[in-house]
């Protein structure tokens, strides 16, 4: 059976990001107590793969590099319909920038066996770098397309992929594996059913260490990351904050005077 591999990243729930804070002493990000969810666009990736499963009987394998305590979140992908999860979890993988992440994911994709298509979310909402898709493709030696708004196939072997270049739409045609980064325009991810949740419990979820994957210690985690974060800070807000309330006539007069004082009218 052909196989679709889907990259899934558990992230802190975007709804709770206003509760993120920096430890004032150490400058370290405090995310304790914030729940973990599947990166939303990864569900679009999963949906595209599951459609191939529904139509042509493909196997759908999820790969993820994530801390061990996110297994519950990854089971949600199994509940949606994926067949198995391969997960890389190892302290040595911590602190990875996109290059090291893509290198590690590439090893997981290879572990999954022959991938006939690799689907990813176009970006993860927490980092929003847009970088993993092209870099994963580079490590796998496959072509890629990001900002994908449509994936079509009639026979499950030739694919038409539509890319949104903002000023133009580009449609690619390809037979053979690619790495695709899907946007939310690409499809509507299915919801999890009760049956799905039940069957997810008995589906395989394998956890690998860096060693299991034969990863080069120089290329993973912080070591394999050419970029480092040299500082974190909360954005500064230096604004006048003059709040006006009352009758529209009065507040508008005051506003216009204020804008003139500041020299922008």
């Amino acid at each position: 059976m052909p196989q679709a591999v889907v990259c899934v990243k558990p992230i802190p729930d975007p709804k709770e990001w206003d509760r993120l804070s920096l430890d004032p002493e150490t400058g370290v990000l405090k995310r304790a107590g914030i729940s973990t969810v599947i990166n939303p666009l990864d569900k679009n990736a999963l949906e595209a793969a599951l459609q191939l499963k529904d139509r042509f009987g493909w196997t759908v394998t999820v790969v993820s590099m994530a801390p061990p305590d996110t297994q519950k979140t990854l089971r949600e992908a199994l509940a949606m319909g994926a067949d198995k999860v391969l997960m890389a979890s190892d302290r040595a993988l911590g602190g990875a920038a996109t290059l090291a992440t893509a290198y590690t994911l590439a090893a997981l994709v290879r572990k999954a066996g022959d991938a006939d298509m690799v689907f990813c979310g176009n970006m993860s909402l927490d980092g929003s770098t847009n970088q993993v898709v092209p870099q994963l493709a580079e490590f796998l030696g496959l072509p890629h397309a990001s900002h994908v708004v449509g994936v079509e196939t009639e026979d499950g072997s030739t694919f038409r992929v539509t890319v949104d270049l903002k000023d133009a739409l580009l449609t690619l045609q390809h037979s053979g594996p690619m790495v695709l980064g899907l946007t939310k325009e690409a499809n509507d991810p299915r919801l999890v059913s009760v049956m799905g949740i039940i069957s997810a419990q008995s589906k395989p979820l394998e956890v690998f260490s860096a060693q299991d994957l034969d990863l080069d210690p120089e290329k993973i985690g912080q070591k394999g990351s050419p970029t480092i974060v040299s500082g974190l800070f909360m954005p500064e807000i230096k604004r006048r904050r003059e709040i006006l309330s009352g009758e529209p006539e009065e507040v508008v007069d005051r506003l216009i005077d204020g804008l003139r004082e500041m020299g922008v009218l």
Binding site: A97, L99, N130, Q131, Q135, L165, T227
Partner: peptide, 30 residues
Amino acid sequence: AGPLGADLAPRVAARLNTGLSAHCVDLKLN
């Protein structure tokens, strides 16, 4: 960081084995 640059830069960075920061809002010399 538009769709073209954001699609191309990461692949070039991986090819050159160098670092790439995404969606910078400021750049200065240290």
